[in-house]
Computed example of a mutant assay.
Amino acid sequence: MVLGAVGAALAAPMGSTFAQAFPSKPITLIVPWPAGGSTDRHHRVLAEIASKYLGQNIIVENKPGGGGTIGPGAMALTAKPDGYTISQYPMGMLRVPHMQKVQWNPLTDFTFIIGISGYTFGFTVREDSPFKTFNDYIEAARKAPGKIDYGSTGIGTSPHLLMEELSANAKVQLNHIPFKGNADLMQALMGGHVMAQSDASGWDKFVDDGKMRLLLTFGEKRTKRWPQVPTAKDLGYGVVSTSPYGLVGPKGMDPAVVKVLHDAFKKALDDPKHAEVMAQLNQEVWYRSGDDYARWARETYVKDKRLIERLGLAAK
């Protein structure tokens, strides 16, 4: 008992001293998508702003693949819980484990730091596509089941699952082609390798430049930036999705270090420069404290299990 008390007394000052000194070197922020996409654009700006408040650089490291799960998953398995390696945590983290075996637990192997934002999802085609409206695309799928394709950012991601849900509601069979992220997906669409793409708003500049046509968005209401474009809800397909995301670290992080990171990124969320990139991506801030974010993740994990089972995508 005496030894335990002495150990606890020694550990407390050491832990608090470490937190007071944090950060004393650059922090790595894993973005589990290719460089140049909407998530990468957002996190590079966010990292730049937060680094001012932390007094250390935040280095963005792109680790795409697995529908956004490879980067955070690798962090959970290999990174020290010292606050120097953190990651974006996309919705796929709460879905892929229902669809295939993974080496990490999406809830217990992570420390939830802060909820940040949610995507504006849309469905786009090239400007020379024969599909002038989304209903044109669906009608083509009715006439040629399994022959009409679209790309997404990976199996189990929101752009994939919302189209699975929509096609089930519309009673059509589409051909899904997964990619590592929206940067390579957009290249494939522009190169004519896929007919259409379901993705977050990294397509914004292509739409505004007239190189792509935005046929549909998936929010609760129409976007401010493209108010003429109907939602899936408007057209009666019954699918609404924003796919919130935030930042996490490995499990077992010092709560004082988590607070330092949370407070810096919270200030970054409120920064006018961050508001500019949010407007460009047509996204809203989705702030959640670490505790609230973890609670949301637990609830969503259970809810999305039912969705994946209903779509017939659960692991056998």
Results as ranks from 00 to 15, higher is better:
residue 80 K to G: 03
residue 82 D to Y: 05
residue 58 I to S: 06
residue 56 Q to H: 11
residue 79 A to E: 06
residue 63 K to T: 13
residue 70 I to G: 03
residue 77 L to T: 09
residue 55 G to L: 13
residue 65 G to C: 09
residue 81 P to N: 02
residue 68 G to K: 10
residue 73 G to K: 14
residue 63 K to N: 10
residue 68 G to D: 10
residue 76 A to D: 07
residue 58 I to K: 03
residue 72 P to V: 02
residue 63 K to I: 15
residue 67 G to N: 08
residue 63 K to L: 10
residue 75 M to G: 08
residue 69 T to Y: 12
residue 55 G to N: 04
residue 67 G to D: 05
residue 81 P to L: 14
residue 57 N to K: 15
residue 75 M to P: 08
residue 74 A to Y: 11
residue 82 D to T: 00
residue 74 A to D: 02
residue 65 G to K: 03
residue 51 S to Y: 01
residue 77 L to C: 05
residue 61 E to K: 09
residue 83 G to F: 03
residue 63 K to Y: 07
residue 53 Y to L: 11
residue 66 G to R: 04
residue 73 G to P: 01
residue 76 A to L: 14
residue 63 K to V: 12
residue 52 K to V: 06
residue 75 M to I: 04
residue 71 G to H: 14
residue 51 S to E: 13
residue 56 Q to D: 01
residue 58 I to H: 01
residue 69 T to S: 11
residue 52 K to P: 01
residue 61 E to T: 13
residue 66 G to I: 02
residue 54 L to Q: 03
residue 54 L to Y: 07
residue 77 L to H: 01
residue 80 K to T: 08
residue 70 I to Y: 03
residue 80 K to A: 09
residue 53 Y to K: 12
residue 58 I to T: 00
residue 82 D to R: 13
residue 57 N to F: 01
residue 65 G to S: 01
residue 51 S to T: 03
residue 55 G to S: 06
residue 76 A to C: 11
residue 51 S to R: 13
residue 83 G to T: 08
residue 76 A to K: 03
residue 78 T to N: 14
residue 53 Y to A: 12
residue 64 P to Q: 00
residue 73 G to R: 06
residue 66 G to Q: 05
residue 67 G to P: 05
residue 62 N to L: 11
residue 54 L to P: 00
residue 54 L to A: 10
residue 78 T to M: 10
residue 57 N to A: 12
residue 65 G to T: 15
residue 67 G to F: 11
residue 60 V to K: 05
residue 68 G to C: 15
residue 57 N to W: 04
residue 58 I to C: 05
residue 66 G to S: 13
residue 65 G to R: 15
residue 76 A to F: 05
residue 77 L to N: 00
residue 55 G to E: 10
residue 73 G to Q: 14
residue 70 I to K: 15
residue 70 I to N: 11
residue 72 P to E: 09
residue 57 N to R: 05
residue 58 I to L: 12
residue 79 A to Q: 09
residue 73 G to V: 09
residue 67 G to L: 05
residue 75 M to F: 00
residue 62 N to F: 15
residue 70 I to P: 00
residue 75 M to T: 09
residue 77 L to Y: 00
residue 51 S to H: 03
residue 54 L to K: 14
residue 79 A to C: 07
residue 77 L to R: 06
residue 57 N to C: 11
residue 71 G to I: 10
residue 58 I to A: 02
residue 68 G to H: 08
residue 74 A to Q: 07
residue 77 L to F: 01
residue 73 G to D: 12
residue 69 T to K: 04
residue 54 L to G: 02
residue 63 K to D: 04
residue 70 I to W: 06
residue 61 E to G: 00
residue 60 V to W: 08
residue 73 G to F: 09
residue 72 P to L: 14
residue 51 S to V: 15
residue 56 Q to R: 12
residue 76 A to W: 12
residue 52 K to S: 15
residue 63 K to C: 05
residue 59 I to K: 15
residue 61 E to F: 04
residue 75 M to E: 03
residue 58 I to Y: 02
residue 71 G to M: 13
residue 78 T to K: 08
residue 64 P to D: 00
residue 73 G to H: 07
residue 80 K to R: 02
residue 60 V to Y: 04
residue 80 K to Y: 01
residue 66 G to V: 07
residue 55 G to F: 13
residue 63 K to H: 08
residue 51 S to A: 15
residue 73 G to Y: 08
residue 70 I to R: 11
residue 83 G to K: 03
residue 51 S to F: 07
residue 68 G to S: 14
residue 67 G to Y: 06
residue 74 A to S: 11
